[in-house]
């Protein structure tokens, strides 16, 4: 089914579907609501929750992926974040780490700051990723499609880019409760 025709799901439901398919893979989650929702849904030491440095989630994930070639590294990103650090799509596309999966939760807004529109309504980030050299690029809306494509990406060589169209709906979530230095410490230990 073409993404435009599918039923839209919330960002939290999409995050839940992705995390449900993971066990001990490193996951880097961008700042704002995506990290807070992921923390509330499933807290694992393999999660690196960002609270600042907007735009560089994929760059952190790339550094992990290049240094741990035997682990699949997952980045949970937002459309506003990707637009801010769009150069990193080129770096990933050029370096082609096989173990890199970039999931973009695209609600077409800066959701965490009050749903101001982003340019992803106009600019097709999946096509940008494709042009930059990601090997597998998919664009989904339905939960079943998300699960199907993400499983395929887990099983195949990347770099992969999964654009998930999601609604603007946000969960009622608090902040991530771990101290930043503690997030680093336990993430390092968990992916050793």
């Amino acid at each position: 089914m073409r993404p435009e025709e599918g039923t839209i799901q919330s960002r939290a439901r999409a995050i839940q579907a992705v995390l449900g398919l993971l066990t001990d893979q490193p996951v880097i989650i961008c700042n704002g609501f995506p990290s807070r929702e992921a923390f509330k849904l499933t807290d694992r030491p393999t999660h690196f929750y960002m609270i600042g440095s907007m735009g560089v989630a994929a760059a952190i994930g790339l550094g992990v992926a290049l240094s741990k070639p035997n682990k699949k590294v997952v980045v949970l990103d937002g459309d506003g974040n990707v637009l801010m650090g769009m150069g990193t799509l080129a770096t990933v596309g050029a370096l082609k780490p096989k173990n890199f999966i970039h999931v973009v939760l695209d609600n077409e807004v800066y959701g965490s700051t009050g749903n101001q529109p982003t340019l992803s309504r106009i600019v097709r980030l999946d096509q940008v990723a494709k042009a930059a050299g990601y090997v597998h690029v998919e664009r989904v809306r339905e939960r079943e499609d998300l699960v199907y494509e993400f499983k395929a990406m887990l099983g195949n060589d990347g770099p992969s880019f999964l654009l998930v169209k999601v609604s603007e709906q946000a969960e009622d979530v608090g902040r991530v409760l771990h101290e930043p230095a503690e997030i680093t410490r336990r993430f390092m230990k968990a992916i050793e």
Binding site: V64, A65, G87
Partner: peptide
Amino acid sequence: FTPSVREDEAVAMAAGAYMAGKVP
């Protein structure tokens, strides 16, 4: 050397590498 397109990206990549056991 691992190429990068912006210094903030490079710093973030280095942070990822550090957490994965490298000295960046």
